[in-house]
Design a protein around this nucleic acid. Sequence first.
DNA 1: AATGTTATTGAGCAGATGATCTTTAAAAGC
DNA 2: GCTTTTAAAGATCATCTGCTCAATAACATT
Lengths: 214, 214
Amino acid sequence: MDGQTERPARDGEDGATRRRLPPAERRQQIVDEAVRFFAEVGLEGKTRELARRLGVTQSLIFNYFATKDELIDAVYEKVYIGRLSPAWPERLTDRSVPLRDRLLAFYSEYSALIFEREWMRIFMFSGLAGASLNRRYLEHLGDVILLPLLAETEALAQTDAPPKMEDVWNLHGGIVYIGIRQHIYRMPKPAKPQEEIARAIDKYLLYFGIDSEN
Amino acid sequence: MDGQTERPARDGEDGATRRRLPPAERRQQIVDEAVRFFAEVGLEGKTRELARRLGVTQSLIFNYFATKDELIDAVYEKVYIGRLSPAWPERLTDRSVPLRDRLLAFYSEYSALIFEREWMRIFMFSGLAGASLNRRYLEHLGDVILLPLLAETEALAQTDAPPKMEDVWNLHGGIVYIGIRQHIYRMPKPAKPQEEIARAIDKYLLYFGIDSEN
DNA sequence: AATGTTATTGAGCAGATGATCTTTAAAAGC
DNA sequence: GCTTTTAAAGATCATCTGCTCAATAACATT
């Protein structure tokens, strides 16, 4: 009768739900909930409240993480990891594809990854806290995405005034700001974010006289 | 000898510097330091640390503010107030001036007001905390600045596709992002922010085929 | 079914934290 | 110079918070 569906499943009640998970699984469960929790309330969220949400004692958390900082590092790692795919630099510089299409593809995929409440908020919290991972991420983004993007723009620009790194940051910032409005300020989500991204890209390309066929 | 320059001025030492200010003055001194303090460490900064920075006992703070939340409200008020001058809506819609000039004037003045570490960070902290003042500010900004800006753009746009509110937000976001990079992420300040703002505005106007004379 | 392993609990500690209240002393009035 | 007023300090409280550790009980092995 209860071969697979173990445990009385007495939900809502505390303490009775389930116990004794394999350590790796429990650890992951804690990190997953911590991501949600800290994203919501900030990195100063209390471990007791996190334990309550997990339906677990507070001391259990310290069985898996020596300190709260260590837990926060695990949260950072989980959230930051894989956010910048290593395939993009190459795809962004593939000149057999029109730049507009490359930009559309990149920001379509990238926005799907970052327009996510948990990422947006933890990124902002960690940025405000001056976390080194945050700085490294932005440096990496600049080096590996935006700088190549500048080079691609330069190669195609029809204007006498050359594109500058600030122009790329402006394009990037205008797009990221969509997510900031939605997840940090909790303003309503635009009806068609992809369309707004496309318009931002077209504004950028038009400014440098780059045709959509190039 | 010490007619005006009262007090031994034994600086650096604690407790001896000065005492018994007029209440209004002391209150303001506390709020001023609290703005700096909370902007730096976040709204969860401890009252004891704030008191230490003020060279004053912690209990004194509670002589002027019943609760910490009340102090934070005072900080919000001080920081949010006067950030959106009531003169702008009128100036932004003055069609005797070219739209480009109006935009340049607005964002020149506005950026001078908001590209300020204290404002930027407290705005972000309060936004993350879901403070109602933050939401109201953004609503107000939308109604009183961006919406009129949309109307002005519509009136001059030469394109068949009409300008959308999202375009104005994109312009705004791209500019604000300069300040976010600088003060939230602590990245280096652009060499000439005003120039970058001008370029952002020109990208915007060009996209709608609006000439700089109009 | 009995046993051993160890994930989880429960009780608790030391220091921090917002807030209170009594005491002290700086400045104003006389 | 003495008194009065009240800003500020000092001591302290109740609760919270990260963290520890010994006791318990869930699951695997036999």
